[in-house]
Design a protein around this nucleic acid. Structure first.
Lengths: 156, 156
DNA sequence: TCCTATTATATTGTGCACAATTTGTTTTAC
DNA sequence: GTAAAACAAATTGTGCACAATATAATAGGA
């Protein structure tokens, strides 16, 4: 294999490593989240809502979008499903009718205590040490802010 | 915020960092892949097919599945779309009718030279140095093999 | 041999992601 | 005050992921 070929080898692509690990990690979450009847993106939304609720902040659909990097095309149907199950409320803001405010219900907040067990149950028995996780997480966060500072990806 | 709360804070989740970076990286690929009219998963499939083609190996649907960690529910329709566009062929194996062999067509292989430019165009102007990428990639690959060695994720 | 288990792919259905467009509201400029 | 621009969310449509099931072929065992 020439060095030209190496460049396109699957195992040399950072993007594939990210793609594969992301899905493998999500797969570890799946059975735990199934106990709460949540999908992984629904879980992320609940994390944001719980966090804001603790701090007395209200959350708009656009806030969820900024935080999770998702648009209304993803969030609107997802929030509808959570609302149907009585986990969140969606309310048009009376002072600005364009805005929809999302908040966890009592039932939604009750779920938080069960969710609290998830992080440790995930690691439990994996033999991955905490320091390594923190280091990887911080490196990823650093890469994320770097990527987001680049602005819109272009075809150039 | 108590340490209890910290545990579920979005920014403390490795899973979210992975999720966000994965999508940010894929977004950087998108305009480049759009020039080839490929989606990101289609690009990964083509990488595997090109690699095998260079080495004279044939590739079955199940081989793609093992390599990319995808099942037939994802691959079958994806491969149909690539085949419709004349980039790959899908052929039932005559000696074992259960098997479908996938191979790049001439047109599919012609695309490879354009794809070759993608890795460097991606990095170009991002100011991310190669060493850092390699280090992150290797750490991710190591985590992946660790996760995959754990076996099926369970609800325990 | 026949019968069962296994294997390989395909199909069906749900829920994201994401682009593009739409609807309705508010802001701004004039 | 009105028209144009900007904004927020919803809608529509495509293409993954993934679970569950179906279909069909092969392999193995009695």
């Amino acid at each position: 294999m020439t060095s030209e070929d190496e460049r396109l080898a699957l195992d040399n692509q950072l993007c594939f490593a990210l793609y594969a690990v992301n899905r493998a990690v999500t797969a570890r979450y799946r059975p735990l989240l199934a106990e709460l009847n949540l999908t992984y993106p629904q879980y992320l939304v609940m994390l944001v809502l719980w966090e804001a609720d603790q701090e007395g902040r209200t959350v708009r659909v656009s806030d969820l979008g900024k935080r999770l990097r998702l648009d209304s095309g993803t969030l609107t149907p997802l929030l509808k499903r959570l609302a149907e199950r009585g986990l969140v409320t969606r309310q048009r803001d009376t002072s600005d009718e364009r805005v929809v405010t999302v908040a966890p219900t009592g039932q939604g907040n009750a779920m938080r205590s069960k969710a609290m067990e998830i992080p440790e149950r995930l690691l439990c028995g994996t033999g991955i040490d905490q320091e390594r996780i923190v280091a990887l997480r911080e490196e990823l966060r650093s890469v994320l802010s770097l990527l987001e500072a680049l602005g819109e990806p272009s075809g150039r």
